[in-house]
């Protein structure tokens, strides 16, 4: 076996370019993976061991305990912000944000593309400029408004101000404009009014686009940190990304830091976006590249 494979390999000239390419790839992968593996490792040992020995190559047996602690142990005073609660809050934020964004984006784009509005172009550019004003820029007025409307510590307050941005409108507008005019006209002659056309024709055609948008928006919403930190003060409303921060605050105290639990929570926080991307991946690529229809 070694004989037969060895000989042709030895004869082939070494392609340094390829070696180079692969080295870069491998180094890059390690750069991304090692911290993740370290996180994974600490979730399997006790906090004491982590403190004493630092990161190790051994896999401990504390995965279950750490998992239970991360999911069900409350970290605040109220006892409401368990990992599970925060996971649910994060899911509500991610899904609510993605769906809200898609629905509003699609409807705005539909109006802009298919109706002869008087100031359609102006309206589009106005919407477009919101791309230049992400929430971080307008965070004080946004907070002020959310507070006056009594939206602090509500899901509405968490989600709606984040939705106000043009990305989805922009993508759907581009997509709708690529739908052939003849298709629209055929539907008109076939007696499909605006609502029917939207539901029967445009939505099914946009499937891949919707999936792509869903991934991007879900991950974006999930990863939000600043806004949730501002509008949620009740521990029962904390999202994962914000809750982890609170655990790491404990690390600065005098107790033994809960490395296992915090890292486990980080792992749990990574998982849903990863799953969404894996599940929707093939649609995602289609949605952003496919231009026919």
């Amino acid at each position: 076996m070694t004989e037969t494979t060895h000989i042709p390999v030895a004869k082939r000239p070494v392609k340094w370019g390829r070696v180079m390419d692969h080295s870069i790839l491998i180094l890059g992968s390690l750069f991304m993976l090692v911290p993740l593996l370290m996180v994974l490792q600490t979730t399997t040992t006790t906090d004491l061991e982590t403190i004493k020995n630092g990161p190790e190559f051994v896999i401990g047996d504390r995965f279950d305990d750490n998992f239970m602690a991360a999911m069900f142990k409350a970290s605040g005073f109220s006892g409401e912000n368990t990992g599970l609660r925060m996971l649910i809050n994060s899911l509500i934020l991610g899904i609510g944000f993605a769906i809200g964004k898609i629905v509003i984006g699609m409807m705005a784009a539909y109006a802009l593309v298919y109706f002869r509005l008087r100031f359609a172009t102006l309206a589009f550019w106005l919407i477009f400029t919101t791309l230049l004003l992400p929430l971080e820029v307008r965070i004080l007025p946004s907070y002020e408004i959310a507070q006056q409307l009594g939206l602090l510590n509500t899901y509405t307050g968490l989600i709606v101000p984040l939705i106000a941005s043009a990305t989805a409108t922009f993508f759907f507008r581009q997509f709708f404009r690529s739908v052939p005019e003849e298709l629209v006209e055929a539907a008109r002659i076939d007696g499909a009014g605006p609502v029917k056309f939207f539901i029967d024709i445009l939505m099914p055609l946009s499937q891949t686009m919707i999936a792509a948008m869903f991934i991007i928006m879900f991950v974006y919403g999930w990863n939000q940190y600043l806004w949730p930190t501002m509008v949620t003060t009740e521990e029962g409303m904390y999202t994962l990304v914000r809750g982890i921060k609170q655990l790491t605050q404990d690390l600065e105290g005098t107790n033994i830091p809960e490395y296992g639990r915090a890292n486990m929570l980080a792992l749990i926080a990574i998982l849903p976006p990863v799953l969404v991307v894996i599940i929707f991946q093939s649609w995602f690529v289609k949605g952003l590249t496919e231009s026919d229809k």
């Binding site: 052939p180 003849e182 298709l183 006209e185 055929a186 539907a187 008109r188 002659i189 076939d190 007696g191 499909a192 024709i201």
Partner: peptide, 16 residues
């Protein structure tokens, strides 16, 4: 158009 009692065949077929 829907109420004109017409049917139209397009160059690019315009099938859904």
């Amino acid at each position: 158009p829907a109420d004109r009692d017409i049917a139209m065949v397009f160059q690019n077929y315009a099938l859904y």
